[in-house]
């Protein structure tokens, strides 16, 4: 099977993030593989081990993204492709990403594409479905189970806490939800072997794409941190009085009732 994983390098939302002049300050941020993409990498490796084939990890980014690609190779992917847009692209959005990847997949033999459910930075969840649409293949989002038998595919999909069971066929694109699997740590031998695995770097020119073809359809007006949480208030006294006070606060102060 030809398996591809769409991987994004994102800042770690569990570390400190600072915004300088309406931009996330990259120097102070920590960068990781988007956590949902880790499920995609793990699933790709498990499917390859079960059915044979090879796993290629693809990312769009700059030289710094190589670290995340190497990590995916250390975890067990076979090949990596870095589509380096540093020189050619100032701003992109989901449309841009989907167009670039459409060009990348053009003429390629693909059985399965896995992506994260969302990226934790912008959380749009659009790139996967957009690419499937452009490639004209079926897609299922937020999957929690993937069983493949020949070209028949049986999927469990998370629908707001419930499970939907879907039958479909390869070629297919899925986006991965928490619960699909337990991503492994890269092992030490894996890390040492990763440097010998192929990592191909390509540019927009190689994909025959000009700036106009991929110009973003959206504009980011501003980026800001949510206001700092004010200290909570603990109500005291008789339960009856507490309830009255709470209702009054919800009505008059918070104005949610």
């Amino acid at each position: 099977m030809k398996i591809y994983v769409l991987l994004k390098r994102t800042f770690d939302t569990e570390e400190k993030i600072s915004v300088v002049n309406g931009q996330i300050d990259e120097d102070s941020a920590e960068f990781i593989i988007n956590p949902y993409d880790e499920y995609a990498v793990e699933e790709a490796i498990q499917q390859r081990d079960a059915h044979g084939g090879e796993v290629t990890v693809v990312t769009i980014g700059n030289e710094d993204s190589e670290k995340q690609l190497r990590t995916a190779l250390a975890i067990g992917a076979d090949k990596a492709v870095l589509i380096n847009t540093e020189e050619d692209l100032d701003d992109g959005d989901q449309f841009t990403t989907a167009k670039i990847l459409e060009a990348f997949f053009d003429g390629k033999d693909v059985d399965l594409i896995l992506a994260g459910n969302v990226a934790i930075d912008e959380a749009s969840g659009q790139v996967g479905p957009r690419i499937a649409d452009l490639l004209g293949i079926p897609y299922v989002t937020t999957i929690t189970s993937l069983k493949i038998d020949g070209t028949a595919v049986n999927i469990e999909k998370d629908v707001e806490g419930d499970v939907e069971v879907i039958e479909t066929t390869l070629p297919l694109l899925v986006t991965c939800q928490q619960g699909l699997n337990e991503p492994r740590y890269p092992s030490l031998p894996g890390i040492m072997k990763a440097k010998k695995k192929p990592l191909e770097e390509i540019y927009l020119d190689d994909l025959d794409l000009g700036e106009d073809d991929i110009e973003a359809k959206t504009k980011t007006i501003d980026i800001f941190l949510p206001p700092e949480k004010a200290g909570g208030r603990v109500l005291e006294g008789d339960v009856k009085d507490q309830v009255k006070e709470l209702v009054s606060l919800l009505k008059n102060d918070a104005k949610v009732m």
Partner: peptide, 15 residues
């Protein structure tokens, strides 16, 4: 090196 950085983040996460 990249390998050393990867070892660091893997062991950090595991720990």
């Amino acid at each position: 090196s990249k390998e050393q950085q990867m070892v660091k983040s893997m062991v950090h996460e595991f720990a």
